[in-house]
Design a protein around this nucleic acid. Sequence first.
DNA 1: AAAATTATGTCAATAACGCTGACGTATTTT
DNA 2: AAAATACGTCAGCGTTATTGACATAATTTT
Lengths: 168, 168
Amino acid sequence: MVRQTPERKGAIEFFDQPLTDEGGIDFEIIEGFFFAYRDFISDPDAILERSGFGRAHHRVVHFVNREPGLTVADLLDTLKITKQSLARVLKQLIDSGYICQLAGPEDRRQRKLYPTRAGRELALALAEPQHQRIKRAFDGMSADDRRAITRFLTGMQNARDANRDERQ
Amino acid sequence: MVRQTPERKGAIEFFDQPLTDEGGIDFEIIEGFFFAYRDFISDPDAILERSGFGRAHHRVVHFVNREPGLTVADLLDTLKITKQSLARVLKQLIDSGYICQLAGPEDRRQRKLYPTRAGRELALALAEPQHQRIKRAFDGMSADDRRAITRFLTGMQNARDANRDERQ
DNA sequence: AAAATTATGTCAATAACGCTGACGTATTTT
DNA sequence: AAAATACGTCAGCGTTATTGACATAATTTT
């Protein structure tokens, strides 16, 4: 570990040397991840803005399309937000005709969520620029490289709940 | 492209089939990126909460440590936020003694930003769990795989401004 | 030297998105 | 019949971002 003596100017002690690899920390990856995610999310943001929606709507539309028939509880579990946070966003999507609710056939307390045609089209439109970006990033990469990236993205996540697909 | 006939129930038209790879879109990567980033950011979030700070403070502390002496304008450019958004966060960090400002030696209108000792320590503490997470994700990967990931993260970003390091 | 531009700071209003707590209602389980 | 569950909703709050407008100091241009 390199010891960096801080500068002094009057009474203030400060550091003028860049933090690079203190303790073997890979700041390049940390920053790369930040910038990559920010830019990744900016494309759909621009589309959403035109509909008066935000990121929260994006996530809901996405997961309802990915798993039609999921319940409100499922969605809360996936997004890790509170019921009240979801409520407003979900209501807007239902009122705007992107998502519809149906009472669960077995348990009628449940509200099963499905995309309408508009909802499916929106999900596709939002995914399209992200797909292009991924394609560009993958360009010229081997199958091994691509597998490594999938593995990396999985490895960066918290251990997913084992009983995620155990519900009914 | 597989055509999926939507279901009908009364007057409502909806889709009950999962959106999988419509148009070759890789939803696995899209979701993987979402979950990975969310979990990646959650570790420092927990630390920040104890100091009464948020993600905005994290970003500022990080970049000031990475490039001591950057100006307010540089920071705005890096973070892509507005001056007003930065102002409050920066003020809190200065008032709390994590960052100090010095007038630019050549251009005295500039406020050059430096981390104090506390600021450097905070940046390291915040990076530590992220470092551990990256290490875990990299575990058992070849040097080639790791390079692919760096390349991927770079490829996912918008083209950076060519004259980013041209300013004195 | 005067005027224009630049770097920064600040005030005020607004919005998106998350939170907590509390309560109501329909439905299912015990 | 009572308890638990799934969901909806009301009310209030905090953080982070936004825009617009204006002020100040320092530098550059004319």
